[in-house]
């Protein structure tokens, strides 16, 4: 007889971590904070351009015509919009590396996984930028259309990371499951 679904069991069963796991978790969080800070040491010019380009093209599909002004600046209806580091999700990716790194898996597996995560986050980020643009074009105030949507996006990423982190404590290696 199959057991209950994993998601339900994780919700119903309180997570009991050993002392070692708790220490590991703290180290992960400390490293995540450090990684986020490190990400801001760089300007990520190319990534800004790529993010703005993806956003620009997605907006074009939605009928919103952004005009490129510079590498990381676009204009829409006379207002300049500048793409900065948070707009690229690079800080989120950096912060997620220590949290998603699976110690039970080989380094090469983790690198490959983080590369996939990077691509996923890039697409997700372009999508959230365009969604906020569409909302803003529909007369939704900027704070709601962009900033609240940004917070919601960060939250969704956090939920995914946290769920995955909990799963990694329950079944350490996805390679074993495969």
């Amino acid at each position: 007889m199959p057991g209950p679904p994993r998601q339900n069991s994780s919700l119903l069963t309180p997570c009991k971590r050993s002392g070692a796991e708790r220490r590991t978790l703290w180290i992960r969080f400390a490293l995540a904070a450090l990684a986020v800070a490190v990400s801001y040491l760089f300007r990520w010019e190319s990534l800004r351009f790529l993010s703005s380009e993806a956003n620009l093209r997605l907006d074009l599909l939605a009928g919103i015509h952004l005009q490129r002004i510079s590498n990381d600046t676009v204009m829409w209806k006379g207002v300049l919009y500048r793409y900065e580091n948070p707009c690229t999700f690079v800080d989120v990716w950096f912060g997620s590396v220590p949290l998603l790194w699976n110690l039970a898996c080989p380094v090469i597996w983790n690198i490959g996984f983080m590369a996939i995560v990077a691509m996923g986050m890039f697409c997700f980020n372009a999508l959230r930028l365009s969604v906020s643009d569409i909302l803003f074009a529909a007369q939704v105030p900027w704070n709601l259309a962009h900033n609240v949507i940004s917070g919601l996006s960060y939250f969704l990423v956090w939920v995914w990371i946290w769920t995955r982190l909990n799963d990694s404590y329950r079944s350490p290696s996805p390679l074993d499951a495969a």
Partner: peptide, 29 residues
Amino acid sequence: NANANGNAGANSNSKGGGEIALGTFLGLA
């Protein structure tokens, strides 16, 4: 051009998050 809040001068917005995004994230979390 832009400060942390993403406002640079009169006619510029940052595509970053800002305090509202942080507040939304914390509230949802």
